[in-house]
Every structure is written in C-alpha cells, then in structure tokens.
Design a protein around this nucleic acid. Sequence first.
DNA 1: TCAAGTACTTACCTTTTTGTGTGTAGGGAG
DNA 2: CTCCCTACACACAAAAAGGTAAGTACTTGA
Lengths: 113, 113
Amino acid sequence: MNTNSPFLCGLDAALRLIGGKWKPLILYFLQKSACRYGELKRSVNGISDKVLIQQLKELEANGVITRTDYKEIPPRVDYSLTPLGKSLVETLRPLCKWGEDNEETIKSKLVLR
Amino acid sequence: MNTNSPFLCGLDAALRLIGGKWKPLILYFLQKSACRYGELKRSVNGISDKVLIQQLKELEANGVITRTDYKEIPPRVDYSLTPLGKSLVETLRPLCKWGEDNEETIKSKLVLR
DNA sequence: TCAAGTACTTACCTTTTTGTGTGTAGGGAG
DNA sequence: CTCCCTACACACAAAAAGGTAAGTACTTGA
C-alpha cells in the first residue's frame, strides 16, 4: 500500500465495503442467490427499511451488488452479487469459518451491547 | 450459526473483533512483531492517544493481543498477538490481498469521507 | 530548576451510524 | 370505496464512535 492511498492497508480498503452492522449478513444471504427486497428484509431479522435500503444502496454504489427492477406492479426488485461482490465474498470464507469455529470464545470474551 | 447466537453469522462474529477504524491497521503492524506503545502510535499515523489505548484495550479484552508491562521507568510496554490473534490475522490474508488487488476499483467507487 | 520522554487518563464535544415512525405510488381484492 | 401489497422516502431521535486538549507520575539530562 503506497503513501498516497486513501486506505491504511488492503484490509482497510476491503472493510470500507463490508463494514457496518448489517452488510456482512446481507452478503451472506445474497451469496446463496438473488433476493427480493422483502425476502432480504425477513432474512436479515431486525433491520429497518431505512437502514436496509441505505446499506443496499451503498453496496450497489460500490459495485458489490446489482439491483434489478422488474418494473412490475406491485413492485418487484431483486438484489444479487456482481462479479466483484462474488470475488469479495470468496475471500471472506476463511474469516467466516474462523468466526464460526471460534464463536464460543468470542461470545465469552466480547462485551455485548 | 444457531438461532440463540448473539451473532448474525461467523463473519459477523469475526468483525466484532476487528471492526472499528483503526483495528485492522493495529493488527497489520503487530503481525510483523511486538510493538511498543509509542512505536505503534507513530506507525498508525493520525490516531490519538485516547483512541489507540481504547482499541488496544478492546483487542486485549477480546483475547486478540497481549499487553506486556516491563515495569520500568520510564515506562515500557509492548503489545503482541495472542495465538487467537495470530489465527485471526491469518484468515484476513485473502481479504487483505483482495483489498490490495482491487484498490483502484474500490478507490474509484467509494465515497470517501 | 526545568524541559523532555514514557504510557497513559479524563472531561468534553463532534461526527457517524443506526433506529423509529410515518408517508407515498399504483394497482388488485373485497 | 377502502384496505392491503410492494419497495421505498423522509424527518427526526438516539446511540455509538471518534477526536481534542489538557493533565498524571516518575525519572533522566541540561
């Protein structure tokens, strides 16, 4: 990483795209297949419309996901991973697995709020 | 990931430990070798004492790093990765590399603040 | 005596992120 | 004619994260 980069390191760069409370989960669900808005909302339990839309827009603006509007009424829209998004999600596999493997450890140490 | 887990998925669990503006960079520096406080501060350019200490304490409380106080005067303290921290950092490699490889793409798409 | 160096600590404030609650368009069902 | 459905939008509020500036203890060196 060179000195005039806006990022601290590659890790920092990547985390700019997937940071935030809900983005990992959104990617986690889209990894399987494209999802409609409402479907995603039900999957990502507890997220509000405002925040979900916001995260989706950011992910879309960052080229990680694609929004498809079927121009139907009632509205039908779905979201899926772009090639960039897919390659990103691939690299998250080890981290994801690490999180699963160490869930108990993390749970016991983390101060949950 | 089961239903009574406090985490959304393994990825979420892992990100609880390394989330935050500076933690990735801190880990990035500690990956190489143990570092003294002042050394770390100079490396992680721009961070304030308050925030650096805070992040270090969280990392320590979460079992990712170890603090060693040499009880000397003037004070000498250093920080290093625990085995857990080391295994975590390992899993970050692909993500880190992805970030480096795609730096230009990310830079062009991201709304930097 | 006085400044400098080390590793913090504290009070206070600003910015960023997340959440709540309500509203909208354009149909179809009853 | 009114309610319900979908995928949002908007104003506002709360919470979390980050930053600033000052101060602490103790010792060495000028």
